[in-house]
């Protein structure tokens, strides 16, 4: 038997691919370019204070970026497990996950971050002196690590809800069809449910990324020298709040707009004919 009727790609698939390519740089990129241009303009036209300012907060931008990326990757993984646990048919698993989500959602992110940075190490030290465990007594965690833990732990609760809604939006018939073909639950999830849910999940997931990026400013409260913290340092040393916070705001804007474009691009990649 010949296996050749496959060669001709349906016209609509080809045209969809073409459109996606054309739109890779859609007009929202103009906005990104405009903000970047504004930053560059300020730096070149008024190097004092903008250039000094930029050079001063540069490491803060970098720190904000990698705190965001590492936390978000962890949130994607941990949030998925919590989301699946929330859908588990085992009452105990579902219960633990639900309690976790409810607790996290009920405590301000700022308080959670401070808790991870100051309260938790203190608890471990107290435990160390109570039970005479030297390594606990001298427990001094890295500030950035604790900040990342705090953000991850907090945002995973929100992300788990994104996953849960996405998975629930896929019709029950999809799971039934997969199981009726002999697939295990894990196979059905991996090959059938998750790939479809991704399409639904991506837009709210993008929102989480952008909110997380902005909320990294909260870790300035626990003395992590990220962008906001560096801005405050510069502003109080040079007494120029207008210039400093304009620049800091613009730099956040560049990052969030880029993140938005990235998410929009991923959404396009995930599309398929329906």
């Amino acid at each position: 038997m010949s296996i050749n009727p496959l060669s001709a790609l349906p016209a609509s698939v080809a045209s969809a691919a073409r459109t996606a390519k054309n739109e890779r740089f859609d007009r929202w990129w103009i906005m990104v370019a405009a903000v970047v241009a504004l930053v560059l303009l300020l730096i070149t036209l008024k190097p004092d204070p903008y250039k000094n300012l930029f050079l001063f907060v540069r490491d803060g931008v970098w720190r904000t970026t990698y705190i965001t990326i590492i936390s978000f990757v962890l949130v994607i993984v941990f949030g998925l497990f919590v989301g699946l646990a929330r859908l588990s048919k085992h009452k105990a698993i579902r219960g633990v996950a639900t309690v976790y989500v409810e607790i996290i959602r009920g405590i301000p992110m700022m308080v959670q971050i401070i808790y991870w940075a100051f309260a938790l190490p203190a608890i471990i030290q107290e435990m160390g002196s109570a039970w005479n465990i030297p390594s606990f007594m001298e427990y001094r965690p890295d500030g950035i690590v604790m900040a990342i833990f705090g953000l991850t732990f907090g945002y995973s609760a929100y992300m788990s809800e994104v996953y849960r809604a996405g998975i629930q939006s896929i019709s029950k018939g999809q799971m039934e069809a997969a199981r009726s073909l002999g697939m295990t639950y894990v196979q059905a999830m991996r090959y059938i449910i998750v790939p479809q849910a991704v399409r639904v999940i991506l837009p709210p997931m993008g929102n989480e990324l952008i909110t997380l990026l902005k909320d990294t400013a909260l870790v300035s409260a626990v003395a992590i020298p990220e962008l906001t913290r560096r801005g405050r340092e510069f502003s109080s040393a040079n007494f120029n709040p207008i210039e400093t916070w304009t620049m800091v705001a613009l730099l956040y804007l560049v990052m969030t707009l880029l993140a938005t474009r990235l998410v929009a691009y991923l959404e396009k990649m995930a599309r398929y004919e329906r």
């Binding site: 019709s171 018939g173 999809q174 039934e176 069809a177 997969a178 009726s180 073909l181 059938i192 790939p195 479809q196 399409r199 398929y272 329906r274």
Partner: peptide, 12 residues
Amino acid sequence: GMVFQQFNLFPH
């Protein structure tokens, strides 16, 4: 094998 009323093909 099972065939469903709503087909349940995998749309992706």
